[in-house]
Amino acid sequence: MSKQSVQGTADQHGGHGSLKSYVIGFVLSLVFTIIPILALENGWLDSDKRIIIYLTAALFQFIVQLFFFMHLKEEDKPRYNLMSLLLGLFIVFLIVIGSIWIMMYNMVAL
């Protein structure tokens, strides 16, 4: 960063993705939206097992968003976005698992 701007980096790395990658990302995100809708409408599997379809589709949706719209792959080093994503995931799992653990054994909540 030779010439420093007060705008920070917001306007410094120009080319984010291409039209092609955006179209692919858009189509993929539509696909992972339609699959659970179809599963629900047509009643694939029983409702218990269907949840697995929803969760898998959600996971893929998340990955598509990260790579095609958040540009996780194209980041220059050091990879701050990746690091903050990992820390964020860690904290989210901590909140969910910790809460379940604490509340499960909670004597008052029974």
Binding site: W101, I102, M103, Y105, N106, V108
Partner: peptide, 21 residues
């Protein structure tokens, strides 16, 4: 700053979540 996210239950030890927690 990371460890600060791992200690919250010490504010309610008396809530009754058992010895493990």
């Amino acid at each position: 700053s990371v460890l600060s996210f791992l200690v919250w239950a010490h504010h309610f030890f008396t809530m009754g979540s058992g010895a493990d927690v």
